[in-house]
Design a binder for these strands. Structure first.
Length: 703
RNA sequence: GCCCUUGUAGCUCAACGGUAGAGCGCGCGGCUCAUAAUCGCUCGGUUACAGGUUCAAAUCCUGUCGAGGGCACCA
């Protein structure tokens, strides 16, 4: 039997679930359901990565044991998955499972017993150097210390005291011997790393030279991890422990999971990862696997990140994150699933805004698929006593069918459906979900058009058209049946629902779309009770509710959690090697202060508007000449034309960013920026110019 | 500084080197089975710019500019 093994990253258990977790897991769930339908023996892994110094520290800060803490986080993750219907995973992997300890230790031994492609030992003991703050009693990472001008020794950000350079014993993996092996494996295989652009990045990273990788820490500095076999003074450090979950979960190196079937699944694994952890999943993971004498994965696919509706990165500070609570409260799970697959070109970054989601749900689901189902079934109720009519047209009635604009031969529709189905599957197999869905929607449009052309509500009045009417309704319903099967993995609940409304009761989860045959929908089948599957959303109403809940949330916000940055290995040169995770998480976002120096870079000055006028053919721009106490007034352009009459601004004193890089707009150079309070919540309210209550001198600097 | 990707309609995206299309949105008209739905029509493009190769370029090559990303460097 063909097998398919799909994994999400195991999410690092140091922060609560967010959109990135939901997204990757959703895609994996869709793929798993799809492959199951198509007869694959499918295995779906997700879970949490639960070791490491970060978790140890967060737990300590909360006065918990690390185990209690990761139990809590993984519990939250499972709850979130359940909230969004993501319950079909075969294992929720946790690296704290005893079987994983056993297996990863066995993997370590296996690797250690082998040699690198260049005949060296794979693992050796060395030293790595790190900066240690005695006051904190902790090693400090790049993000936790600063190097001041003219100083060599970094200072702890907490105590501002110079750090000690401490040399610590560590085991290293001889990654530097694997460059050629990796290049050969990756360059020659077009589907090993996808998409192509990411593959190129990995290749160029490898070509720039690989350094050996520290894979352990002394137990005295990091205790929360898997002990190194044969040296209980060390625990494994991050990657070897975390990545290996993909094999330990299916039975590598342990008895407990053996029954799952490492042999049958491993050759057919697809790893979904965020682009931020691709390198670890390729360079490190492939090398570990080779060192253990194991096959490489079939495909590792790096997907993009979700940006906000304006294309900016999401973050706490910008307040533009998508809140899972809001999604759950206001949107159908199936609509979210559809949206994330339809809206993002898989592999590229995508934009996620509540408004876009509402628009998609209304246009494609409510008006599109939902309405087609609704109009078709309601006509069957009205015109055919609620039973699927016969779709055949007798030859002597062809003339009437043609008169109604209907091709008497259903073969034309059959080829359309078959072609759409084949293309859909082809795109799906190639991870082109967005395009696959587009194809399905072109079929919906076609059936809508068929109905409009045939006008069943008129056919019913003409007894010569009885067969035409039946054929139209049969064709529409049979198409719906096909669409339910195709779309089931994407929108499982809704498609089951429509499938049931058509009057079908077999198990849609195992209907292979490849085997769909036109005409298998049985005449005389009684259709089920019809109901709207996709509710239409009132955009304004939903948006204002979301805004309201957003405000409430900010008021009730808990104090910020302790900031913990990932610990880095100082010797390896990859400070950005963050843990298994994807999407920016809260812990990364908390610290976002600027220094006084940063602020002083911005030269804010008081200026008086001398001239203000509209610019021909520019709807938004106004041209100003503003006196900043310089030789002559500056020309500054600002997008205020929609909100202010230029005349009313003359003589006003405003705050100007005086050292902004000049920029040309509408052919005019702008030498600064006028400061105004802007309401960026999309309500279109007018901005307010910054002003002073007291009298101020022109040119005065603000600081 | 080096490298990768990308630039097509207001927006999101298509288009083996062969007549630039679709969806959404906008405007007009039709229809009533349906969830203010749906159907038709219209509007919308010098394919970022400049060269080159070719019978033919959105597509291939070179350069410029813009966007995103990776690495290095700096902080």
């Amino acid at each position: 039997m063909k097998t398919f093994y799909i994994t999400t990253p195991i999410y690092y258990a140091n922060s609560l679930p967010h959109l990135g977790h939901l997204y990757t897991t959703t895609v994996a769930d869709v793929l798993a359901k799809h492959k199951k339908q198509r007869g694959f023996d499918t295995y779906f892994l997700t879970g949490t990565d639960e070791h490491g110094v970060n978790i140890q520290r967060v737990a300590e800060a909360k006065g918990q044991t690390p185990k209690d803490y990761v139990d809590y986080i993984s519990g939250e993750m499972k709850k979130m998955f359940a909230d969004f219907g993501l319950t079909d995973y075969d294992i929720f992997m946790r690296t704290t499972e005893p079987f994983h300890y056993e297996a990863v230790r066995s993997l370590w031994r296996k690797i250690a017993s082998n040699q690198t492609p260049k005949g060296n030992s794979t693992i050796y003991k060395g030293f790595y150097e790190a900066w240690f703050c005695p006051n904190c009693a902790e090693f400090k990472t790049e993000t936790e210390y600063e190097i001041r001008d003219g100083e060599d020794v970094p200072r702890c950000l907490v105590h501002e005291r110079p750090l000690d350079k401490v040399s610590e014993e560590s085991y290293f993996f001889r990654l530097s011997d694997y460059g050629e092996f990796l290049l050969e494996a990756i360059e020659g295989n077009p589907i090993l790393i996808r998409p192509e652009a990411r593959k190129n990045e990995v290749i160029s990273f490898i070509k720039s030279g690989l350094q050996d990788l520290s894979i352990s820490r002394e137990k005295k500095s990091v205790s929360w991890g898997v002990p190194v076999p044969g040296d209980e003074n060390h625990v494994m450090y991050v990657w070897l422990d975390a990545l290996s979950n993909y094999i330990t979960a299916i039975g590598y190196g342990n008895e407990e999971r053996k029954a799952v079937g490492f042999e049958k699944y491993w050759g057919n694994v697809t790893h979904l990862v965020g682009k931020d952890i691709l390198r670890q999943h390729s360079v490190y993971w492939f090398s570990f696997l080779d060192a253990a004498g194991l096959e490489l994965p079939q495909t590792i696919y790096a997907h993009g990140m979700w940006l906000d509706a304006d294309g900016r990165k999401m973050g706490k500070t910008l307040g533009n994150t998508i809140e899972l609570g809001v999604l759950r409260e206001h949107f159908q799970t199936d609509a979210i699933r559809y949206f994330v697959l339809r809206e993002m070109v898989f592999g590229q970054d995508g934009k996620f805004g509540y408004e876009n989601l509402i628009e998609r749900a209304n246009a494609d689901l409510a008006s599109g698929l939902g309405n087609l189902s609704s109009r078709t079934l309601s006509m069957i109720n009205k015109y055919c006593d609620g039973a699927i009519p016969n779709g055949k047209i007798a030859e002597h009635n062809y003339i009437y069918a043609k008169r109604a604009g209907i091709n008497p031969d259903e073969q034309e529709l059959v080829s359309v459906l078959e072609h759409a189905r084949d293309e859909f599957l082809r795109k799906f197999d190639n991870f082109e979900f967005s395009q696959a869905l587009e194809i399905v929607w072109s079929v919906i449009a076609r059936i809508d058009k068929m109905i409009s052309d045939a006008k069943p509500w008129e056919l019913i009045k003409d007894e010569n058209q009885a067969e035409t009417l039946n054929a139209v309704l049969y064709r529409a319903t049979e198409t719906l049946r096909w669409l339910c099967v195709l779309l089931f993995p994407v929108m499982p609940e809704a498609m089951k629902n429509i499938y049931g409304q058509i009057g079908l009761s077999d198990d849609i989860t195992v209907i292979n779309p490849e085997n769909l045959n036109y005409g298998e929908l049985k005449t005389e089948t009684k259709i089920g009770e019809t109901q709207a599957v996709f509710p239409r959303l009132d955009k304004n109403k939903v948006m204002s509710e979301i805004m309201e809940s957003g405000k409430l949330k900010i008021e009730n916000e808990e104090p910020k959690p302790v900031v913990v940055q990932p610990t880095e290995n100082v010797l390896t040169q990859n400070p950005t090697d963050v843990l298994i995770n994807n999407q920016p998480d809260e812990a990364d976002e908390v610290e976002n202060f600027i220094t006084i120096d940063d602020f002083l870079k911005v030269e804010l000055r008081v200026g008086e508007i001398k001239v203000a006028e509209r610019i021909p053919k520019a709807d938004k721009l106004l041209r100003f000449e503003i006196d900043l106490g310089e030789e002559k007034p500056r020309q500054i352009l600002a997008g205020l034309a929609e909100y202010y009459e230029p005349e009313t601004l003359i003589g006003r004193k405003v705050v100007v960013v005086a050292n902004l890089k000049p920029r040309t707009m509408r052919g005019l150079e702008s030498n600064g920026m006028i400061c105004a309070a802007s309401l960026e919540n999309g309500t279109g309210e007018k901005p307010a110019l910054a002003a002073f209550i007291e009298n101020v001198d022109i040119g005065a600097r603000l600081k």
